[in-house]
């Protein structure tokens, strides 16, 4: 039995009211979306806010729409299940729909929100444990302690970004819209992350993520998401890979992108993907060779740590495998890649 620490629940009805509450209470407040990340974290006393600001009664946050200019606008409180099931998302932004469909379990996708997955706290096998468990080890760098159990002597937290939606959204150039005490700002999702596992997002505590905007994809767009995890039914990623391929009218790759998650504190773009696969045609031996080259490059660059569950050596060996398979799936207009 895991009891929640006591807090006061606020239920604002507007974004302005919510931001006001977050600004008023500062570090003593936390925003509550679907509760699938915050509630377990509170039960583990990783966060112990005095005021929890529920966003459930703010109707404007729950939307999922395609704007007139073709932009996909996902409200922060849009349930992940709704995003995964929306046909227009699957057709226009397949990597996003595939990633959403592989987040957690059906029940958690019903309650969990897209905004909550974007804002998911970093995870580590030494962190996401009960207070008793953590206390018995003298806590850790991220919470209550001063020692990192992943990197001996390490002074920087290496808890891993574990949000499947982030690489998928980054692969298609999404941006995040925040509202704070100083007004509204939109930034490319790429710019949101820092490399600090303690707090891997560059936003103020009083800033509220209100929506994610995804630009329209071109006619020749193909995308896929690949996810490696222990149990295919529920787990966070041991490794995640989102791929975007934009093809020209003749079917050759014009532009390409691959973004990885669960390796470090931030989701990271694999550089040089477009140069390697550009000009090749999915299904051809040239494309297959280019996909292998991208995969090898990803394997060389990746430095998996024993931060999330799963053997780091195994995860390292799987980096090129997952990257290659996800590239091939995207090329074939398929996916998701989920080897379980």
């Amino acid at each position: 039995m895991l009891r929640l620490p006591a807090f006061e629940l606020a239920r604002p009805r507007t974004v302005e009211e919510a931001v006001g509450l977050l600004a008023e209470h500062g570090d003593r407040a936390a925003g509550l979306g679907g509760g699938t990340d915050l509630v377990p974290n509170m039960k583990h006393k990783l966060v112990t806010p005095e005021v929890v600001v529920s966003l459930a009664a703010i109707p404007e946050l729950g939307g999922l729409a395609v704007a007139e200019d073709g932009t996909l606008v996902i409200g922060a409180m849009c349930p992940i299940a709704k995003l995964a099931a929306e046909e227009r998302v699957g057709a226009g932004w397949p990597a996003v729909a595939q990633a959403a469909s592989l987040i957690a379990s059906p029940q958690l996708r019903n309650s969990g929100t897209l905004g909550g997955n974007v804002m998911l706290d970093t995870r580590c096998r030494w962190l996401n444990q009960t207070f008793f468990w953590r206390k018995s080890l003298g806590f850790c760098l991220k919470k209550d302690g001063s020692e990192c159990h992943v990197v001996s002597g390490g002074s920087r937290c290496v808890a891993a970004a574990s949000n499947d939606s982030a690489p998928a959204l980054m692969s298609v150039g999404a941006s995040a819209v925040f509202v704070g005490p100083d007004g509204r700002r939109e930034l490319a999702l790429e710019e949101l992350w820092s490399t600090d596992g303690v707090r891997n997002k560059r936003c103020e505590p009083a800033e509220l993520l209100v929506e994610v905007r995804v630009p329209p994809t071109a006619a020749g767009h193909r995308g896929a998401y690949g996810k490696l995890r222990d149990r295919g039914s529920i787990d966070f990623p041991l490794l995640g890979c989102a791929v975007r391929l934009d093809l020209d009218a003749a079917g050759a790759v014009l532009d390409a992108d691959a973004v990885l998650v669960a390796l470090q504190a931030r989701p990271a773009r694999l550089r040089g993907c477009a140069e390697l696969v550009g000009g090749t045609t999915p299904g051809s031996p040239e494309f297959a060779a280019a996909a292998r080259a991208v995969a090898e490059r990803a394997g060389r660059k990746a430095r998996p740590l024993p931060n999330v569950p799963g053997d780091a050596e195994y995860r390292h060996a799987m980096v090129p495998v997952l990257v290659r398979r996800t590239l091939e799936a995207a090329g074939a207009g398929g996916g998701p890649v989920h080897p379980l």
């Binding site: 629940l9 239920r11 509550l32 509760g35 509630v39 377990p40 059906p106 029940q107 958690l108 019903n110």
Partner: peptide, 18 residues
């Protein structure tokens, strides 16, 4: 798991007030 408005939902991470 309980059904909330017909959808399977985990009661352990849902606040009673909500």
């Amino acid at each position: 798991t309980v059904l909330v408005d017909g959808e399977p939902t985990l009661a352990c991470v849902t606040l009673a007030v909500l």
